[in-house]
């Protein structure tokens, strides 16, 4: 369900990602999901962590450009077709997905996926109505 994602602006230069992960490790921030959206000129690092406010402050203090965004994390059964079902649900109800990525090694036989949708409230109530409202174990 609704979780807070941290995104960090990254110039495409060597070592920038290593620098960020080193920083977070030194402050005991453990990463539940990491993904990078990149273009030829820059990248956006997206993170899911247990305590997003703390992680954001760590990043800002170190001079990074970081912000919080609400996204939807959905715990799904780890079996074929699970993602397709959710996608179909969004599509049928015209909830546009901006991007999605999966959460690192889910616990048990659940596969967790993070969705950024255009209309968060609608997306969230839709998931609730259809039983995708298990809280995420971060």
């Amino acid at each position: 369900m609704k979780v807070i994602q941290i995104s960090v602006f990254m110039e495409n230069k060597n070592g920038r990602l290593a620098e960020i992960t080193r920083l977070l490790a030194s402050k005991n921030v453990s990463l539940r999901a990491v993904t990078i959206a990149d273009t030829a000129d820059f990248g956006i690092l997206r993170l899911i962590v247990k305590d997003p406010d703390y992680a954001r402050d760590v990043l800002l203090e170190a001079g990074f450009t970081a912000k919080e965004t609400d996204v939807l994390a959905v715990a799904m059964d780890d079996e074929p077709g699970a993602l397709a079902e959710v996608m179909e649900l969004f599509e049928k109800n015209q909830v546009n997905i901006e991007y999605l990525y999966s959460i690192l090694a889910g616990k048990g036989n659940k596969a967790d996926v993070v969705f950024k949708v255009e209309d968060l409230e609608r997306g969230q109530s839709l998931l609730k109505q259809n039983g995708y409202d298990k809280p995420l174990d971060l």
């Binding site: 995104s7 602006f9 273009t39 956006i44 450009t65 950024k116």
Partner: peptide
């Protein structure tokens, strides 16, 4: 330099600025 206030989690938004 990007104004931090306008930093976005979406590439298309930053590309729009570019």
């Amino acid at each position: 330099e990007v104004e931090p206030k306008f930093f976005s989690d979406e590439t298309k938004e930053l590309e729009r600025i570019s």
